[in-house]
Amino acid sequence: MKNIKKLCLMAALGVMVTGGSLLPSTTAYAATTIPVTVGGSLEAAIANAKPGDTITISGTVTAGSITVPSGVTITGKTGKGKIDFSKTGKVNGKRGFVVNGTGSTIADLEIYNAGDNGIYVEGTKNFFTNLNVHNNNDAGVQLSNGASYNTLTGVNSHDNCDQYKTDKTKLGENADGFAIKLHSGVGNILTDCTAQGNSDDGYDLYAAHGAVKFTNCKAIKNGICNGIKGDGNGFKVGGIDNKTPGQPAHADALNHVLIGCTASGNTGAGFDRNNQTGVVTMTRCNSDNNLLGNYQFPATGTPSALGKTITFGTAIIDGCTSTGAGANKNNLSGAKVTNSPTVK
């Protein structure tokens, strides 16, 4: 009897050492492709999707607000997919895509008519590629509240305009092309993205909590859309955080990086510090004909939220250009300019 018990114990140990299991084996989930065509329900496809699945959009699909599950890909078939988010409404409308999870991909789609943001992100390590985001009632794309390590490539966000607020004095002030603000996290990267013709800023980093890297991104003619006007800065790279509950207004020093970026024809400044206390580095950037100056990087300022004068980090402007009407309105007292003979 003792020998039998010993043999059983040895067998069990053998299973553990070799990574085996005494339980019946289970078959791994096989990822599937879920097609959605004109007249189909994106909501139903999302409800059935599991991590690893791909939802393909063909033609124009009308939808309400969609919360994207982690690990799911939503893509336009051969680049022809369109999502009309008009079901979200306009006044007090909802967002189009809401991405709170991890590892999702949205690609090759046209996204428009959302009552709020076209795409809103609080999640991490998601991918947004080759998108045409336009005519939404707030920022085309917004990353906030911890959104981190997200990658945006070839996203065009244009003609977004918050034009349906009941308070008519605040029309136009929130619809940026890209709003990476209000406690967005670290590691967000934008490459080959374009913000054009939005009612507020091209890129707004107000009260961000993590540095952003921009490569070959463009901000063109922002600040007016459908006759409604906002701030109109091309790249607004800062802002005093007075939105954190339980904390007094404070400056977060963030070292944003911009490489090969262009700001042109915006109604505000092309590249604007906006009270950023960190070291913003601009390399081979071009700024042309921005109404309130091509580069606004003063050495000190008195943010209204703080009520006192503070000294900013010294910006680095290397190998950049400044041309057109905005060239004579620059403030470079808080910048180190190198290899940039036209930036004065």
Rank of each mutant, 00 (worst) to 15 (best):
F178D: 00
A179W: 10
A179D: 10
I180Y: 09
I180W: 06
I180V: 13
K181C: 12
L182V: 14
L182E: 14
S184V: 01
S184D: 03
S184E: 02
S184Q: 06
S184F: 03
V186H: 09
V186N: 11
I189P: 06
L190A: 05
T191Y: 11
T191S: 13
T191C: 04
T191V: 11
T191I: 12
C193D: 13
T194M: 10
A195C: 02
A195T: 01
A195R: 04
A195N: 00
A195P: 05
Q196Y: 15
Q196T: 14
G197I: 05
G197H: 08
G197F: 09
G197W: 07
S199F: 08
D201A: 11
D201H: 10
G202E: 00
Y203R: 05
D204T: 13
Y206S: 15
Y206A: 15
A207N: 12
A207G: 05
A207K: 14
A207R: 15
A208R: 13
A208M: 08
A208L: 11
H209N: 14
G210D: 07
G210F: 06
G210C: 06
G210T: 09
V212P: 00
V212E: 03
K213N: 07
K213E: 09
K213H: 09
F214I: 08
F214G: 01
F214N: 04
T215F: 07
T215D: 11
N216D: 14
C217F: 14
C217S: 12
K218A: 08
K218P: 05
A219C: 03
A219W: 04
A219Q: 02
A219H: 01
I220D: 04
I220Q: 05
I220F: 10
I220P: 01
I220H: 05
K221D: 08
K221W: 07
N222E: 00
G223M: 07
G223H: 04
I224Q: 10
I224R: 07
N226H: 12
N226E: 12
N226I: 04
G227Q: 05
K229N: 07
K229W: 03
G230D: 01
G230R: 01
G230P: 01
G230H: 01
D231H: 15
D231E: 15
D231I: 13
D231K: 15
G232N: 00
G232Q: 04
N233W: 11
N233P: 08
N233E: 09
G234T: 05
G234Y: 03
F235E: 00
K236R: 14
K236G: 06
V237L: 14
I240Y: 03
N242V: 05
N242A: 12
N242C: 05
T244C: 00
T244S: 02
T244G: 00
T244P: 02
P245Q: 06
P245W: 11
G246C: 00
G246W: 00
G246S: 00
G246N: 01
G246I: 01
G246Y: 00
Q247H: 13
Q247W: 07
Q247P: 03
Q247K: 15
P248W: 01
A249H: 08
H250T: 09
H250R: 10
D252G: 02
D252K: 13
D252C: 08
A253D: 06
L254D: 02
L254A: 03
L254C: 03
L254G: 05
L254Q: 01
L254H: 04
